[in-house]
């Protein structure tokens, strides 16, 4: 998977078709308020056709609020938004006709059978009945739900419902697929099946926008991502570029007894560029993890467990938001 490194440049001129793929999503100063509370505080986005774009951020960062605006079901409170080149305020139906949406919370019709959820949904997009039926069967097969086709949605497990929601979002063969935490609740096998499917869709030219709390998912799927915190974008770039920009090459993890991490951190904070204190461990950010570990031992400290590893998006996230991805 190629990882084009792009640098965030808010002043960059909007893409036009002569310079590259057209923007499918373009937002400037996008805001969303709920009463007095501002969930999205002026963000800029530019997602070209064919890209896989991700939102990372802690709970309440404003990811879903942004996704709903992009899905043309939530009017922006301020700023400019263009989806597929159209204004969602005036062209909502035309935009939605070309989107596939997997919302964070399933919106399956619990009174319909599993297959009817797909067939009836395809009809909303104006697909002929026979086409809905054949696409439904194909999607059920792909997402391994065909044995349950006649059952009610209520009889599905959480992960199966999730799979059905994703299957449903593909019934209209969308140009732009919006996935809000698509794999939350999926078992590892189902996640890999989905990643595989998304990767193939991407190769067919479908633009993907997803939010996730799993950094492996973000690293696997996203060409480019933004980290959101408190309604703002705090970093933007490819996974590799973000790691390079916001973390060190390596991390030394030290585990001591419960309750000791805070005080021990003070004794070694000169050994690394940065030290993060988590409830169960210390993270020392450094360019040479083994070297740092040797210094720790020199000071007479004996951690119960150690791990030297490369920096990941998780570290970027922790650094930028002060929180771990899955909390």
């Amino acid at each position: 998977m190629s990882q084009p490194v792009s640098h965030p440049d808010p002043t960059a001129a909007p893409r036009t078709s002569s310079e590259g793929p057209p923007s499918l999503i373009r937002a400037t100063g996008l805001r969303k308020s709920f009463g007095d509370f501002e969930a999205v505080r002026g963000i800029d986005l530019d997602v070209p056709a064919g890209e896989a774009f991700g939102f990372l951020g802690p709970n309440g960062a404003g990811k879903s609020s942004t996704m709903r605006m992009i899905a043309a079901v939530s009017p922006p409170s301020a700023g400019e938004l263009r989806i597929l080149g159209l204004d969602p305020a005036t062209h909502g139906p035309q935009i939605r006709a070309r989107l596939g949406v997997c919302p964070q919370e399933d919106t399956l019709d619990t009174e319909l059978s599993i297959r009817d959820n797909l067939v009836v949904y395809g009809r909303y997009f104006g697909l002929p009945r026979s086409e809905c039926a054949s696409r439904a069967d194909e999607l059920l097969r792909f997402f391994q739900l065909q044995e349950k086709a006649r059952q009610k949605v209520e009889s599905l497990s959480g992960g199966m419902k999730r799979r059905l929601t994703i299957a449903r979002s593909l019934i209209n063969q969308p140009d732009l697929l919006l996935l809000d935490e698509p794999t939350t609740g999926l078992d590892p096998q189902a996640r890999h099946v989905l990643w595989d499917k998304l990767f193939r869709l991407k190769q067919q030219g479908v633009t993907l926008v997803l939010t996730t709390h799993y950094m492996d998912e973000a690293e696997q799927l996203c060409d480019r991502l933004v980290v959101m915190d408190k309604g703002e974008i705090v970093a933007e770039g490819s996974p590799l570029a973000l790691i390079r920009e916001h973390s060190t090459r390596e991390v030394t993890e030290l585990r001591f007894g419960v309750g000791q991490h805070e005080s021990l951190a003070e004794r070694i904070d000169d050994l690394a560029e940065r030290v993060e204190v988590l409830p169960d461990r210390l993270l020392l950010y450094t360019d040479d993890g083994e070297e740092t570990l040797a210094r720790v031992h020199e000071r007479g400290l004996e951690p119960a467990a150690v791990l030297v590893r490369r920096s990941t998006l998780e570290d970027v996230f922790l650094h930028l938001t002060g929180r771990t991805l899955v909390d």
Binding site: A71, V73, P93, Q94, R96, A97, L99, V101, P103, D106, T107, L108, D109, T110, E111, Y121, Y124, F125, G126, R168, N172
Partner: peptide, 11 residues
């Protein structure tokens, strides 16, 4: 049943 929530994400 969330019927409408699904519908409104379509045209």
């Amino acid at each position: 049943n969330k019927t409408y929530l699904g519908m409104v994400a379509t045209p």
